[in-house]
Design a protein around this nucleic acid. Sequence first.
RNA 1: GGUCCCGUAGUUCAAUGGAUAGAAUAGAAGUUUCCUAAACUUUUGAUGCAAGUUCGAUUCUUGCCGGGACUACCA
Length: 589
Amino acid sequence: MNIVGTLKTITAKSILDIYGLQLNANEIQINETKSEFQGNYTIVLFSLVKQLKKSPEVLGAEIGENLCANHQSIVSAFNVIKGFLNITIADELLLEYLKSPSVGETEKKSKSKVMIEYSSPNTNKPLHLGHLRNIFLGWSVAAIRKENGNDIVKTCIVNDRGIHICKSMIAWKMFANGATPTSTNTKGDHFVGEYYVKFNDVLKQQVEELIAQGKTKDEAEKQSAIMLKTQQMLLDWEQGNPDVIALWKEMNSWVYEGFDATYKKIGADFDKVYYESNTYLLGKEIVQKGLEKKVFYKKDDGSVWIDLTADGLDEKLVMRKDGTSVYITQDIGLAEQKYNEYQCDKSIYVIGDEQNYHMKVLKLICQKLELPSTNEIEHLSYGMVELTTGKMKSREGTVVDADDIVNDMINIAKQRTVELGKVADFTADELEHLYSIIGLGALKFFLLRVDPKKRMIFNPEESIDFHGFTGPFIQYTHARIKSVLRKVGGVEEAINITSTLLPLEKQILLLAEQFETVLEESMQESDPSKIAIYVFNLAKTFNTFYAEHSIANAENEEKKKLRIAISALTAKVIKKSMQVLGIEVPERM
RNA sequence: GGUCCCGUAGUUCAAUGGAUAGAAUAGAAGUUUCCUAAACUUUUGAUGCAAGUUCGAUUCUUGCCGGGACUACCA
């Protein structure tokens, strides 16, 4: 059922019947009624005034009459205030909804096959808070699409080669003395990250010395001994030097072990992982194709370019003069490879907004080359996570490490839970699990509740609250409902109930009914924050209701049955909503 | 310089051109003989500035001020 959709349809029909004006149902503007007015939904009449040449008051009265008369089972009352027609939904419609066998289930409508690329780390340092936003977003958008019926392929492109990897390797050779993650009892990605930091320390020192000798900063960076060594190592790597390759493989394997542990802990997973070391040579035939189609042109030095100035962008290099492909060319090549393997209808890239320009160029080039494989590219662009102290900068050590913040959150959850002392009978394993889902729930909800494309600020001092618009608040609401249902017992199905609904009961049912609509919107906009806001409202409304009305001591059996059914439905919808955010919801906490 | 994004309560976030700009936190005041107080109730408090478009602007247009990103033969 879709009440808003139904309302639009019958309103359009009423308008046709009364005025003979044919309107598309989607042209009807319906909002939720503001709480200070009577009614549940509001039809905004202003846009009709011009077409029908009647005052809003008259329009509202006439349409309202018509709706009430012809659709008694849907509209039970109406009132008109200025240009707003406020509609009250009939109790019986909501009771019917509550009784329907599929209540709280999602209809799988959209069958497309969609690829979602997310996380995409470098192998020279551990994941940080920004990656977490990326990972939670990617995972959630995938889950939202899956719930809508999409066939999902989750992928990750690992940036496992290039100068930055060589930096860690050089530093390891200089300082490690054969140490490994095992020998030092360090998580692999952190272990390698430490050498990346060491590299930068040495580089900084050498650069300072060279600057003192009168070089410019640029020169100094390029000419420093450690940088020259790194450049050489990159060449060796490209030529397949066995020693370099062996070390590279070993260090990467440490990093992957570390990443896997983190992914496992936070519940991220991939169907297919691509490695840049396998794909960085891709795209050469594309350059050829582009030259043939005259989309690209060759400069005298042999480098290949595309001119995008007509599209308001610049000239972009697509192949170096030495014949190697650049990032953008690799990306096009990889897109083709992905398509050849999976034939997806759509490809979503979860990448930070600093690459907006790059992705724009990518899409443009694909269009110009008329590559069918890259038809539906969506850049799910998200804003940087900043700290109250400013941006995260690895050089200044102000990066919030992913593992650290996850562990902190779980520890805070533990501390809070222990203080409250409500789960004394849990086993040690159950407790571990509980702390984990609460801590992660807080973190995921915090990062997902904000519109992805906006920058957000994270305050590590105050950490994340467990009160208010937070994951734990919603988890807690769910746990309470479950607790009540356990104690009250009874059947959760709403059979044979005929009762007048209280305003709050009505509100809860109307909210629950909106779940699918919100889910679909959230898919179309690739925005999990819609779900987060929605589920918070549902939980909050339920809590208010709960504080005012008893279930165990309801006025009569009928009302008790009704409230049990509503509670069960609320719990179900909360669970589903949280599930697509990647947040588990406990039975008890 | 060019292109793009962002400026909303003390703070963190909302608001397809619609009603008196919503929440959450923090501040103030309350609520547990009753199903989980990680809860609930009441209250204080905001659209950077200036024009324009119109019945009506946080939203659209222009200018200014402030913040950010991109503009690499790096990835």
